[in-house]
Design a protein around this nucleic acid. Structure first.
Lengths: 230, 230
DNA sequence: CACCCTTCTTACGGACTTCTGACGATTGAG
DNA sequence: CTCAATCGTCAGAAGTCCGTAAGAAGGGTG
């Protein structure tokens, strides 16, 4: 995870907000504060943080409404702060799409851990659609995250595994490096040579003759294509 | 049947639990309550009841997992509470060994009757054979909560046992530390190094060469996976 | 054949993940 | 109450992987 992550803390109680800020900063996050709903929404619009910690009770626009609007904006994770005895609201908050909630009084440590947990979950890889992929003597088990070739285990790194998984689920289709960066790396921009190098390393492991690849073919001037062995 | 029979009701909704308790007590049972899976398992370990009424949806360790562990402990009958529309889970619950199920919303009278019915059946039925988990020279007796390796007893702590039990029941599947915290510890947040350290300690006891583990494999960037010895 | 652009190959330092050993708190037994 | 065992936490060490850069090789074009 590339730190520092930016967290927006929304609470009208300055004391609470300040304690939270201190703890989150010690955990390596960059924190900005907002005192009310309008302020929060404005800041999010200007410069979207990676996560929002949101008090339920706010002057003006209340927490639920802010949460709903954040949902509409996009996929910014939200952790709700709720006072004890606001059970119904807590549930409503979750249904509105809060990713987690913490009830007051809370230990700053717990909040910090939950922030980490939600952020991790936010870009956790989605459950594999196809748990088991094969091509020739190549077998890729997405659940075990293990790949074998002719029965022998292939020691693939995380990136290599993801890349191969993507290729196996999209055989016969040519992709630009840019496209691969987007689909496999999840980047909107970046050095294309990153792809080149990883393809090379992957070839080294799955091709019989890496210099004359038959699986991951170079499409000159375009990118790469995975060809199933017939 | 010589009363009173002791029934453990597991439900995080206090209102529901309370209604159920009242009815069961009126029917002559002694009732204790648990609000979550951990609590339930602890109570069962301390003082096994004659029957468990178990909500499917629980915070932390969920109902299915609790049911499975109860099964492994021994012959305590289980009645599952499931919400309508949880058909697949209901089926899974029955396969896991629930003796009966009641769908919410239920009439307390119906539940009471089913409790009586299951208890009656339980006395005439042979105890279910206790599954014992093995892998290579490793043997884990879930009922006795004892583990042996090559015949010699393995002195595992509670956590270590739970962790190993989980691994043995889910071999070949890669889990994140977060996921393990959730399934084994029953936490929905927490310090991931907790898992790391416990895996290390467990390896120390079950691996031939703990520094080069063959059973609990590290899946780099993801977590751990248990590989059965072939 | 000569030039240019693309792709291949190799190497390296930094960042991140995992491992390891140790410590204080808590719990339960004697 | 005391003592031993277990647990969660932490910090430093060790190990692994990744992105980048830079030169070499190869394909395309006139």
């Amino acid at each position: 995870m590339d730190l520092p992550t930016r967290v927006l803390v929304v609470d009208d109680d300055v004391t609470v907000a300040d304690v939270v800020r201190r703890y989150l900063e010690r955990a390596g996050h960059r924190v900005t504060l907002a005192e009310n709903g309008e302020d929060a929404l404005r800041r999010v619009a200007e410069d979207p943080p990676d996560l929002v910690v949101l008090d339920l009770m706010l002057p003006g626009i209340d927490g639920l409404e802010v949460c709903r609007r954040l949902r509409q904006r996009g996929a910014i994770p939200v952790i709700m702060l709720t006072a004890l005895g606001e059970e119904e609201n807590r549930i409503a908050g979750l249904q509105l799409g809060a990713d987690d909630y913490v009830t007051k009084p809370f230990s700053p440590r717990e909040l910090t851990l939950r922030v980490g947990s939600v952020l991790r979950r936010a870009h956790t890889r989605p459950a594999p659609l196809t748990p088991s992929l094969t091509d020739g003597d190549l077998r890729l088990d997405a659940v075990a995250r293990k790949a074998t070739r002719a029965g022998a285990e292939l020691p693939l790194t995380t990136r290599e595994f993801d890349l191969l998984e993507f290729f196996l689920t999209h055989p016969g289709e040519a992709f630009t490096r840019e496209h691969l960066l987007e689909r496999v790396w999840g980047w909107d921009f970046g050095d294309q040579s990153t792809v080149t190098v990883h393809v090379r390393r992957l070839r080294e492991k799955i091709e019989k003759t890496p210099a004359k690849p038959t699986r991951i073919t170079t499409v000159w001037g375009v990118g790469y294509r995975y060809d199933r062995t017939p």
